[in-house]
Design a binder for these strands. Structure first.
Lengths: 171, 171
DNA sequence: GTCTATATAACGATAGAC
DNA sequence: GTCTATCGTTATATAGAC
């Protein structure tokens, strides 16, 4: 799965063949097919593995009864993960093939709904625009060439600082 | 090219074949090859067409001698275009195949450098993080499912409002 | 400029031996 | 679990007629 993720990040899902993945780990295509019945299942497994890292934080946030606190709790975890695994989340979030695939994958849809349930306070248009922009800001903020040479700790604190002030300014 | 862009937005570059593009406009593959020697050239032409829409605003911004004013000038145009052509810019910016392709395409690199030359005040780490986040915030802010039902005018003004706030939050 | 036809290669996926 | 071998399909790309 690490090999698959690295290849997909570089060439996209459509540009990554099972042969490339098999070569990347030194086995044949048939061996890969023994673990995953289709290419789609590899993508779904990759996404679930990455989203699973948010599960605990999401549950903790949902148990919190002060909404702004819940939001900050979750947001910090999202930023930590985005920085810690630079590129992984962004790859899975933006590849058009993955977007289409996950749109038909119910467990994924439910998880995303829970996520935004905590992050977006209400259904007002301005709240939704803010959430959409935030999502892009974090995802791109960790992979953009402009930040390639910035160490994790500095990047994390800067992301936190900017997202926090953005929310505070709204209230 | 419109047909190609729509298909790439939906299936990614790797998932879009020349056959699909040919079918989309009702001709054969051979007819498409008559206009573009390779699939890569289609992608480059698409990107150049989209970036060309920024050329005038970029030149005007570079002629401006008050940096913050130049930045706002360009930023407004970027937002206008992102909203006006929802999805087009985001598609081209995030598809991994396009990212790799354009990294080796010098005219594109020069244009991007000029863009960020105006948008990023200095080379300090926090300025670069902010620019990276801004780039993602706008690109995702116009295509995210959360904003799909918001009309262009509202979306544009909200994007403008929040990006301004992002700049303020950095200081 | 668009067509038919084709060359060559790679794709996803499966069967069956070990 | 991994292999070799293969099926059927599709891919990019080209040649040559109209």
């Amino acid at each position: 799965m690490d090999a698959a993720l690295a290849l997909i990040a570089e060439h996209g899902v459509g540009g990554t063949s099972l042969q490339m993945i098999a070569d990347g780990i030194g086995v044949t295509k048939a061996a890969v097919y023994h673990q995953f019945k289709t290419k789609e299942q590899i993508v779904i497994a990759l996404t679930e593995r990455e989203l699973g890292r948010l599960e605990e934080a999401l549950e903790a946030a949902e148990a919190e009864d002060h909404p702004p606190r819940a939001r900050d709790l979750l947001l910090d975890r999202v930023i930590d993960l985005a920085v810690e695994r630079r590129g992984a989340a962004s790859t899975l979030q933006f590849d058009p093939v993955i977007v289409r695939l996950l749109a038909d994958h119910e467990p994924f849809q439910r998880f995303i709904e829970r996520l935004y349930g905590v992050l977006v306070g209400d259904a007002a248009a301005d709240s939704r625009v803010l959430a959409a922009m935030l999502s892009g800001a974090i995802a791109v903020g960790v992979v953009h060439p402009l930040v390639a040479d910035i160490d994790d700790e500095s990047l994390r604190s800067e992301l936190r600082r900017i997202t926090r002030r953005l929310f505070d300014a709204a209230n």
